[in-house]
Amino acid sequence: MDIILKNVKKKDFPVLKSLAKSLGFEIIEEKEKPYNPEFVQEILDAREELRQGKGTKMSIEDIDKLWK
């Protein structure tokens, strides 16, 4: 059985870790990976272009034509 703890405060983590070790549990720490900075910049640039009016408006029909 797997148990996942989320939103554990840093001060509480050592206590939980020592308790788990004393009970013989296996501990696997997974750190969240940040988004790729290039991808984030691409999204931010696209949002700014939309704000500046550089986007293209498409109707549902236009989008439907792209599928075919």
Rank of each mutant, 00 (worst) to 15 (best):
D45G: 01
K21Y: 09
R47K: 15
E30L: 14
D12L: 13
V40T: 14
K10Y: 12
D62Q: 15
L23H: 11
P37M: 02
N36W: 09
D62M: 03
P34K: 08
L19Y: 15
L66T: 11
K31L: 10
E38S: 11
N7T: 10
K17S: 00
L23W: 09
L19H: 06
P34F: 07
M58W: 09
K65C: 00
E49R: 15
E38T: 10
L16Q: 01
Q52V: 06
R47E: 04
K6V: 13
I63Y: 12
F39K: 08
F39T: 07
L19M: 15
I63W: 11
F39M: 06
Q52T: 03
F25W: 05
I4P: 01
S59K: 11
N36F: 15
W67C: 02
N7F: 09
K33Y: 05
I4Y: 11
I3V: 14
I27L: 11
L50A: 11
L23E: 05
D12S: 13
I4C: 03
K11D: 04
L44A: 10
I4M: 06
K21R: 12
D45K: 06
I60D: 09
E38K: 09
V8Y: 13
I3Y: 06
W67T: 12
K17N: 06
K33P: 02
K9W: 07
Y35F: 14
E29G: 02
L5Y: 10
Q41Y: 08
S59L: 05
P34A: 03
D64M: 09
K6C: 04
L16A: 00
Q52I: 00
S18M: 12
S22T: 13
N36K: 02
L44M: 05
L44I: 08
K21E: 08
K11L: 04
T56L: 10
F39V: 10
M58L: 15
A20V: 05
E42C: 06
L23K: 14
E42Q: 10
L44R: 14
V40L: 08
G53V: 05
E26G: 02
E26A: 07
I28G: 03
P37G: 04
E26F: 05
K65W: 05
S18E: 13
K54C: 01
N36G: 00
K57L: 10
D62Y: 04
V8C: 14
K65H: 08
D12Q: 12
S18P: 02
V40P: 02
L5I: 06
W67S: 01
A46F: 09
E26N: 06
E30C: 07
K21F: 04
K31V: 12
L19V: 13
E32N: 13
E42I: 04
A20L: 15
D2I: 14
E30P: 00
E29N: 12
E30T: 14
K10P: 01
K21M: 07
N36Y: 12
P37L: 04
P37N: 00
P14C: 02
Y35L: 05
D62F: 07
A46P: 03
P14D: 00
V40F: 07
L16F: 02
I63Q: 10
Y35I: 01
K21D: 01
D64I: 15
F25I: 12
